[in-house]
């Protein structure tokens, strides 16, 4: 015997919700709304509500989840009115992306060309123009969807998440930030204030390739590639994968194989093989695991060629 409450959660998010409650909604549950004007004020509110509160930036992931009643936070802390969180600038050879910087800001920024090419290539591939106009890079990373694009791009380039909490500021390496799908190292009363990238290297290039069923869909497969050159050989290579694991996957073996190698066809093919091996795809409506693994290989090859050419130019 089962009831509406005991039918188990399985499968896709909206459908799971549907099976639990016998209906999806376009009306969110009741919540309180706060619009603080400083990070401290926001932290106070977060502390008061604990894990019942959610931070709202662009709202492009959270609001749909609330409308479907998959998420029902009792308080929303809208950080959109806090000054100083919208900086997108290079500081000491590293790019700093503030909490309110939107995907569209990145799409338009000249900073994200050349050495930061992996980020520049990612921005226009995030969802659709409507989402890009409102959604934020930091919000996307904090949401920790394994099908999110920024996670891969930033893993490939190297980055850390800067978070502010009651005990002050800390920087969390991105590799340690995501612990699983939609799970992060963030404390309930912490806010991501910015993301800081690594120094891309003096002669560097990168790109992001994304296979999607249509604009606005999550990636079936995404591959982010960053390459820096050192006297004609590959200095550092960053490769990270979207949609083929419980988090964005850093293809470490492929990266290691490329470090110090000549940027030739053999090295590229071997790295692509290793990247495909690092993928942990599942069969789903977007395609079979075998198919996705092959796309990882194909995209890693194509991405490396583009990135190396960009770094050489």
């Amino acid at each position: 015997m089962v009831t509406n409450d005991t039918i188990g959660p399985r499968g896709r998010r909206s459908n799971r919700r549907f099976r639990e409650r016998g209906g999806v909604s376009v009306y969110p549950a009741t919540f309180e709304y706060f619009a603080p004007t400083s990070v401290d004020e926001a932290l106070d509110t977060l502390e008061r509500f604990g894990d019942e509160a959610k931070v709202l930036a662009g709202g492009q992931s959270l609001i749909p989840l609330m409308k479907l009643r998959i998420a029902a936070p009792s308080a929303l802390v809208d950080i959109g009115r806090i000054d100083g969180l919208d900086a997108l600038e290079e500081r000491d050879g590293r790019l700093e992306i503030g909490a309110l910087v939107t995907h569209a800001d990145c799409e338009k920024s000249d900073l994200l060309r050349g050495r930061y090419g992996v980020l520049g290539a990612t921005a226009p591939l995030v969802s659709d123009p409507i989402v890009r106009n409102r959604g934020t890079v930091c919000g996307s990373v904090a949401h920790a969807d394994p099908q999110g694009d920024w996670g891969s791009a930033l893993l490939a380039l190297g980055a850390e998440v800067v978070a502010q909490g009651p005990d002050g500021e800390r920087a969390i390496p991105l590799e340690d930030f995501c612990s699983g799908p939609f799970m992060t190292a963030l404390e309930p009363a912490e806010i991501v204030t910015s993301i800081r990238t690594a120094d891309p290297g003096p002669r560097a290039g990168g790109t992001y390739l994304k296979l999607e069923r249509k604009v606005g869909d999550f990636a079936t497969v995404g591959v982010a590639v960053h390459v820096s050159l050192d006297n004609g050989t590959i200095g550092r290579a960053g490769i990270a994968l979207t949609g083929v694991g419980p988090t964005n996957v850093k293809a470490t073996a492929a990266e290691d194989a490329l470090a110090g190698a000549a940027p030739d066809d053999d090295a590229i093919a071997e790295a692509a093989r290793l990247a495909a091996e690092a993928a942990q795809p599942l069969d789903d409506v977007r395609g079979s695991a075998e198919y996705k693994r092959n796309v990882v290989r194909v995209y890693t090859e194509r991405g490396l060629r583009t990135a190396i050419a960009a770094a050489q130019s």
């Binding site: 015997m1 009831t3 509406n4 039918i7 016998g22 209906g23 009741t30």
Partner: peptide
């Protein structure tokens, strides 16, 4: 809200 308070046994 009320939909969530209807208990159906299947």
């Amino acid at each position: 809200d009320a939909l969530e308070l209807i208990d159906v046994e299947y």
